[in-house]
Design a protein around this nucleic acid. Sequence first.
DNA 1: GACAAGATGGCAGAGACTGTCAACATGGCG
DNA 2: CGCCATGTTGACAGTCTCTGCCATCTTGTC
Lengths: 221, 221
Amino acid sequence: MTLADQAVEAGAGRQSMARARRRIRAKCHVQAEALRLFAERGYAQVTVDEIARAADISSRTFFRYFPSKEDVVLWDEYDEPSLREEVWGLPLAEDPLERTILILRKIIYDEYLADRDLLFARISIALSTPSVRARFVAQQIADAELMFSTIAGSWGMRAEDLDARVMAASLYAAVMVAVERWHSGGGRDDLGRLFDGAVRALAEGAWRLQPIGLRLPSSPG
Amino acid sequence: MTLADQAVEAGAGRQSMARARRRIRAKCHVQAEALRLFAERGYAQVTVDEIARAADISSRTFFRYFPSKEDVVLWDEYDEPSLREEVWGLPLAEDPLERTILILRKIIYDEYLADRDLLFARISIALSTPSVRARFVAQQIADAELMFSTIAGSWGMRAEDLDARVMAASLYAAVMVAVERWHSGGGRDDLGRLFDGAVRALAEGAWRLQPIGLRLPSSPG
DNA sequence: GACAAGATGGCAGAGACTGTCAACATGGCG
DNA sequence: CGCCATGTTGACAGTCTCTGCCATCTTGTC
């Protein structure tokens, strides 16, 4: 069973799943062409028309696949099935925090193993193009929050707790730092190990935060 | 001495500082008109042409003031002098981490006190408009990293340490959460206190993170 | 094969943004 | 005061992203 199949089954199931599979394949093809052109000439120097021509579609169809030019970089196959599927599929952990970390780790690892070069190409553009980078960051945070609130909800915690939101965003930070480090190392390191390192750094850094936190609640100044 | 004055002094000093002061005042005026229109009709429903007309400038001039439509929301007076000025001006703290927190806190507090309604209007649009929100988030992170690397550098730490970067991003997370909470409370709470709470949440979360961090370095999973 | 649902392409158009250039304001200086 | 250098503005034309609309073609179903 291919990735596309899984995606479709999880999706709006009722319709013909062949259509959806074709659609995903088509999107992959367009993305590949786009990334090739971006690598050659840079993101800003390639127009949507050119991508469409390279992928043998009309530019109108391009925008039916990807809501914006940025999305052709951000999108990946794994976006198609809802994140929630992944969430429920993982083995339980006692702690919502630990579970979030395990899930994040799995997602990172899956993508990493699936197609290292593709991931590297996407990250390269995401990190070097400000507008794409901004959306990249925002998307990561949204994902982390979705996961955390889902998990926290299933444990009876309120997702709006300061703690939940701060931790979700901080975990994103760990992902982001790991990804950047991985990229700056030319993609040769082990992304999973870098992520572990970032999580440990977070634990240690926040540890040193304890005495400061206690000292804070005094005056505004 | 007005804010504008300070900004100019810190800036490319050599020229006539009257010019720069006028420029900042003009930008403030354009921003005020823009926010007024956005509040009336929503960000997307207002064109740059309309903002320009309302502020009595040409749209070409608008883009000379603000590189993009989004920036008219994101910009504030305090962006003009370099952040570094603020950094060096604050009383020393033993720990770079603590110092970063104090600086963040001061910046938040200054803006907060300067013009609560203006800040609230800007945050409202930043949070509700996806494209602006993405840039808002990215900007916060960049600021936090700039500060942290400046401070870390002055203490002889390497700014590229995993620890430094993770903590910078996590602190941003605390700011973000505090700002969102402040906004959802209608701007009535004390922003500084909310920030303190977020920092404490981070410290506590890290506490719970420690055992997980130690358990991680095993298998990819 | 016929029919319904969905996917596509082409076209026109709004709106964000940029390059260029000529007109204009400003501040300093003889 | 007049003049020059420098910086600021507006107008215009043009590019590019993105959208609505509609006619056309493909696909899956019966």
